[in-house]
Computed example of a mutant assay.
Amino acid sequence: MDKKNALRAGALAAGTTLMMLLMSSPALALTRDDGDDPGKGLSVIQTLGLYVLIPLALFAVIAGLVMALDKSKIRTVKPTATGAKAKADAKA
């Protein structure tokens, strides 16, 4: 695809996105419905814990379990003759 077509596609995507944002309404977010009982909000610490710390902890636990229960063999690299010679030269 040449530059002109790429520019045209980008402009079309940007225009479509802009029109969708302008035409969407806030869905009457400020008007309360019957039976609406929102409760109290979360503090900054609670929000960070809920949306940052808990997912990171879950990721760490799952990654740790995967690594601990991995049954594949660990491949070790055997030194070659040139590798052994390079190590001997480095020591001297």
Rank of each mutant, 00 (worst) to 15 (best):
L48G: 13
V44Y: 05
T16Q: 13
D34I: 00
K91G: 02
A57I: 05
A90I: 04
I54F: 11
D34E: 15
D33M: 02
L18K: 11
R75G: 11
D37R: 10
V66Q: 03
A13S: 08
A27Q: 06
Q46C: 04
A90C: 05
S43G: 10
S43Q: 04
G83P: 03
D34P: 03
L30R: 03
L53S: 09
N5K: 08
K73L: 14
K87C: 05
L56T: 09
L69V: 13
L65P: 04
G83E: 15
Q46E: 15
T82A: 15
G64H: 02
A11M: 02
K87P: 01
I45Q: 06
L22G: 03
S43P: 03
A9F: 10
I54N: 07
P79I: 13
P55V: 03
G49Y: 09
V61F: 06
S72N: 13
L65R: 00
V44M: 01
G35R: 01
V52A: 11
K71D: 10
K40M: 01
M23D: 07
L22K: 10
A14Y: 00
T16I: 15
A9D: 07
K85R: 08
A29K: 00
I62D: 11
D37K: 04
I74W: 07
L28S: 05
Y51D: 08
Y51I: 08
I62K: 02
A84H: 13
G39V: 04
A6I: 09
T17Y: 08
R32E: 12
I45S: 13
